[in-house]
């Protein structure tokens, strides 16, 4: 999907130009189109020859990857709070770019108990919808097995969200990050529906979809994503898969890693270690 051969794309585009034009104008007329401010916004083309997307960063030289070592996660939720602050995610307990799930098996109970920081009990423990902590709700229970699992956008190689976007407002970059163009998104939320991982949410104030960018503004400046930066136990690993000695390459090489919902064919790029059969 992501890499179409040039002639095919051009041919399709040409076809679309005709078909699209015909239909659009029959319906509304070209004059109406010209009056659409968002549609006619022009942007300066980048100078050719220079590195893209910034002068110090060439995206053709990287292929990012993310690792989650669930055996290390302590559920402190510093990542969740840092992400909200770093990326201006709405300060409520319902919309997240990253979150942490807790899986608890109790003795004599077949059902796995799953909660996340947005659960009302946990919000009560944190005391506000802007700060997060896991309530110690299983303190007195006979816990057979329990663990935490951090979640975020999987930046899939074949992202279902990009496939369904009608405008091209979301796309996968050359360096393997799925981004959203907030200046072009029409706010139809088809992508939110299409993501099997629940990684996307709709920002009501901005009227656009939003999700994790792996802190693209940080990684292109040589920094780690905010969640990785603040994780006190190293449960989140980030790096360049091109560099065979990078943290993520070593993580993938030295562990038997798995991805979430491989059956969707999305081919995620967040690799997990230490998760259980219930995690999806």
């Amino acid at each position: 999907m992501t890499k179409e051969s040039k002639p095919t794309l051009a041919a399709r585009r040409a076809f679309l130009t005709k078909l699209g034009g015909a239909a659009t104008c029959a319906a509304a007329g070209a004059a109406a189109l010209a009056a659409i401010p968002g549609a006619s916004a022009k942007t300066e083309p980048a100078a050719d020859g220079a590195a893209f997307p910034t002068k110090d960063y060439d995206w053709t030289k990287h292929q990012w990857g993310f690792g989650v070592d669930a055996t290390k996660c302590i559920g402190c939720l510093r990542c969740v709070e840092a992400c909200k602050r770093e990326n201006d995610v709405p300060a409520n307990a319902h919309q997240f770019r990253t979150w942490v799930e807790r899986y608890v098996h109790l003795e004599g109970d077949d059902e796995v108990h799953i909660d996340s920081q947005q659960d009302p009990v946990n919000i009560e423990a944190s005391g506000s919808e802007k700060t997060f902590r896991f309530a110690n709700r299983y303190k007195d229970a006979k816990v057979y097995k329990a663990f935490f699992v951090p979640k975020l956008c999987n930046h899939c190689t074949h992202p279902a969200c990009v496939q369904v976007c009608p405008t091209g407002a979301t796309y996968r970059t050359e360096d393997g990050v799925v981004l959203i163009d907030h200046g072009y998104c029409i706010g139809c939320r088809y992508c939110v529906q299409a993501c099997p991982y629940g990684a996307r949410y709709f920002n009501e104030e901005q009227g656009v979809s939003d999700k994790c960018t792996w802190c693209y503004h940080r990684i292109t400046k040589g920094l780690q994503p905010a969640c990785v930066e603040v994780c006190p136990v190293g449960a989140r690993i980030f790096g360049d898969q091109r560099d065979k000695e990078s943290p993520i390459s070593l993580f993938i090489r030295n562990n038997r890693v798995q991805v979430l919902r491989p059956e969707t064919g999305n081919a995620p790029n967040v690799f997990y270690v230490g998760i259980d059969k219930e995690v999806n």
Partner: peptide, 19 residues
């Protein structure tokens, strides 16, 4: 580069880190 506005990439990359 593909079916998207290429300039949106530097726009996103230009955001200032908070941490």
């Amino acid at each position: 580069f593909g079916h998207y506005r290429a300039n949106s990439v530097p726009e996103i990359a230009a955001q200032e880190p908070v941490y």
